[in-house]
Design a protein around this nucleic acid. Structure first.
Lengths: 354, 354
DNA sequence: TTGAAAGCGGTACCAG
DNA sequence: CTGGTACCGCTTTCAA
């Protein structure tokens, strides 16, 4: 059988209550007693029973991090940063459970609304201490309502909700959210297109992400804002939607370039798409940037490795993830919304059109 | 307050025991009663209390997946696959808890021995149903012993242990492991170097991973095996160790090429390093593969995007992850060891030396 | 087929 | 400062 707290108590010749107090360090215990208990713990190789502890205390040390695609470094970087900063509490006076160690768990929704809800239920079932939702949200009234309802239930049960790289919930759904870190996707996208316009480009293709995502919409809106501010007519035929992957970018490039051979630039909604666009363009014999300017978004190392000259918009993913981790441990003002700036990084992948 | 099973029982006018039986579906219950209970559940929006359930049943539905680097798609692909196949049990007769849904959680060790142990303890504390350890293991007697001991304790408590992309434990530590999927890194590396030798290369540099990793050692051994089989003298000065990242590859390439300008090929221990090697070589004005052949390992899409012509060794990461997920749910023969083949993928990044 | 009740392993309140 | 002891919410015999 596994060792229980009662075993430790017997071994140390104290009451279970005392052992619990020593372990949680939230109550005065005589140094000698404490010593004895700790020795018993290590002698018996005792490990707290998480479920029992969570049941009794009505909270657990589990923190869920929801990501849309675990194979995408965009999420990996944020999740890793969050995880790393969960165990370095901003507030040292915070009550310490067992070791103060939180079990950060990454849940891969694959972008599926159903799985997003399933994971939230699973985390609710585990009475998670916090939930961090990362990346763009799905824009669908029914789904949004369901998520908002779930989040409300979670918050009710004491789970702290943090949004990272996702726009703040509006209306009644915003209540339960402890903190929001939203990326300034719109401004970033606007700056990117302004940069192209500044170089003289006017025929610009745009390869967007999935239609029902907030990131997709915001980045596209930024692009359009820049166009209309410059008085350039917006041609809907130059915008193609797809998924956030390379294949989508390749296909879109092929389609755009054959439909509109006069394009001088293509804006991709993210770096992975941009890589595909470059591939698609090269397959048509175009050189980048001599014949076609291409831009990305997110500034992922994996993309700039492939195309070091890629002009992109840099989102501070690591910093945002780290901040989200800290917020999940209780830092920050409840209900706070922080906008994370998106910085234009100009490299060689854009040049003035002929 | 949150809704409890007792509330559901009252609402459905049955005993808590009956509600439990309905929810777990592992006991005969009259259809009418069952109906009534299910309606009560949905009317009250009841969600099982995981900790309480785990405490009473002495098992949980949590599955931990340990990875060395969550920002690396190598692990992302395996983890995502495992997660996806955890909820499609191979054995339909397996006892179904709550919904049969397991909470797959990805734990990022960052390659740190201490964090690996910490996570194992955390999972032990949660009474995890299974633990999947992915990727190369750290080769250090003390650490290995500690991990083996931990795994033994976990197995004792009913946690199923699966190794994925990690060599089988030998000796007494092998006991608790339910299944092992080991990549045939050595054979893959051997084939890769044989390919280069076949082209006529004899001065071959090698950029290895961290010294204390099994993957590092096995791949390097495969390389050396090929060299000695071909009667090519092994020059230790041509082997450099570093971490599994791009920077390490770039630096190593610079160092190798200045120390041994007569190199005609460089073998990188994985794709990320290969990317760095290409970058480093190009910085010295070398063209690939005209002036220098470069090979990778793992065949990650993110790498072949960057260098589509990269000759690599393909490991079926998704398939292996999926299999590991199935094994974690109980499939397969206890104690089984499966060797996953590594397939050489020849592309344009290698050519015969002048 | 269903109900009653004894735990599962900790926590935290109340005494002492 | 320490011990005794009701729970926490669910599972699972044992009876009915």
């Amino acid at each position: 059988m596994t060792v229980t707290l009662a075993d430790v108590a017997a071994h140390a010749r104290v009451s279970p209550a005392t052992v619990s107090r020593v372990l949680n360090g939230n109550y005065p215990v005589a140094a000698a007693t404490r010593e004895r208990v700790l020795r018993a713990v290590s002698e018996l190789d005792y490990v707290v029973n998480g479920p029992a502890s969570a049941l009794a205390a009505a909270t657990s040390d589990l923190v869920g991090i929801l990501v849309n695609d675990i194979a995408d470094p965009f999420f990996g970087i944020m999740a890793g940063a969050a995880q790393a900063h969960l165990n370095a509490p901003a507030d040292p006076s915070a009550p310490v459970r067992t070791n103060g160690e939180r079990l950060a768990v990454v849940c891969n929704t694959g972008g599926s609304p159903a799985r997003e809800l399933t994971y939230l239920t699973l985390l609710q079932r585990q009475r998670a201490a916090a939930v961090i939702l990362t990346g763009g949200a799905i824009e669908d009234d029914e789904h949004s309502a369901a998520v908002a309802a779930k989040l409300a239930r979670l918050a009710e049960a004491g789970t702290r909700i943090v949004l990272c790289g996702r726009p703040a919930l509006s209306g009644p759904g915003a209540g339960p959210v402890h903190a929001t870190l939203s990326f300034d996707n719109r401004a970033g996208a606007r700056r990117l297109t302004e940069h192209l316009l500044g170089l003289g480009h006017t025929r610009i293709g745009y390869v967007a992400g999935p239609a029902e995502r907030t990131t997709t919409r915001h980045r596209l809106e930024g692009h359009r804002d820049a166009l209309s501010a410059a008085g350039v007519a917006h041609d809907p035929a130059l915008v193609l939607h797809g998924s956030y992957d390379r294949a989508s970018g390749r296909a879109a490039a092929a389609q755009l370039l054959s439909a509109a051979p006069d394009l001088t630039a293509i804006v991709a909604a993210n770096d992975t798409i941009a890589l595909g666009v470059c591939a698609g363009a090269r397959e048509r014999g175009l050189r980048i940037p001599e014949d076609l300017s291409v831009t990305g978004f997110d500034d992922l190392p994996s993309a700039t490795d492939a195309v070091p000259a890629l002009t992109t918009v840099r989102l501070p993913l690591y910093e945002a993830g780290a901040r989200a981790g800290a917020l999940a441990t209780g830092a920050g003002v409840p209900g706070g919304v922080e906008v994370v700036p998106a910085e234009l990084v100009v490299r060689g992948s854009t040049k003035a059109p002929l």
